[in-house]
């Protein structure tokens, strides 16, 4: 087994373009996941049985099904239900709603951590619900939810490697192409593992910085 660094450099542009796709797909999917999770957690808090049940079902399905199956349902099953999406869109939507199931639980724990009396005080003053969420609940739960959220974004980034299976030209897909063209195995995979490691260390660092910033504020 020998390591030919030249191959990696020759395929540098391909790897970098894959890296870029991975980064922006993951960024968009993470945003969608946070939004979907927040929405589900808020709906879960409403006093309607049916809504609660629907949210529970959404959360359990997302958490109990492999992301690969969800991607296949969207990508291959979508067209027969009249929903034809680009692979990359499927990736963002699929990863986003999948992650939403996990973020919903993170937010739910966050909302539960705020004493209900604080919300009652706000309601008595006529403060509207959106302002209660944005100005009273979320600022207080940041220290609690940032660490698991960071972790969730990391998991989501790792899961994004699966988008290669539905032909999205992200990091893993481009690496596979490199393997197929060069017949080299060691170099591409070592390179790709290092790149993922870098992205993930970057997310962990950013999450840590956020955490420090908000724990100082409170």
């Amino acid at each position: 087994m020998s390591f030919d660094i030249d191959i990696v450099f020759r395929y540098g542009p391909l790897l970098l373009s894959g890296l870029w796709t991975t980064v922006y797909v993951c960024a968009l999917a993470s945003l969608l996941a946070v939004a979907a999770g927040l929405a589900a957690a808020l709906l879960y808090g409403l006093p309607f049985r049916a809504v609660k049940l629907l949210c529970r079902a959404y959360i359990e399905i997302m958490r109990g099904t492999p992301i690969l199956i969800l991607l296949f349902i969207l990508y291959y099953g979508g067209p027969s239900a009249g929903l034809t999406l680009e692979a990359e869109t499927v990736g963002i939507v699929g990863l986003g709603f999948y992650g939403g199931g996990y973020f919903a639980e993170i937010f739910r724990a966050g909302f539960q951590s705020i004493p209900p009396g604080q919300i009652e005080a706000a309601r008595m003053l006529g403060i509207p619900r959106p302002a209660i969420v944005a100005r009273i609940q979320i600022p207080q739960m940041l220290t609690l939810i940032i660490p698991p959220s960071t972790n969730q974004v990391i998991i989501l980034t790792k899961e994004s490697a699966l988008l290669s299976i539905i032909t999205v030209a992200e990091l893993t897909k481009n690496t596979t192409q490199m393997v197929n063209e060069t017949f080299a195995v060691v170099e591409p995979y070592v390179a790709v593992a290092l790149l993922y490691w870098l992205i993930i260390e970057g997310i962990a660092l950013a999450g840590g910085a956020l955490e420090r910033r908000f724990s100082r504020a409170s």
């Binding site: 009396g117 604080q118 009652e120 005080a121 008595m124 006529g126 600022p139 207080q140």
Partner: peptide, 16 residues
């Protein structure tokens, strides 16, 4: 409700 002011046993201030 807007004409009611309420004071609670446990204050319920917003700590942040």
């Amino acid at each position: 409700r807007s004409v009611i002011g309420m004071v609670f046993q446990h204050y319920n201030l917003w700590p942040h």
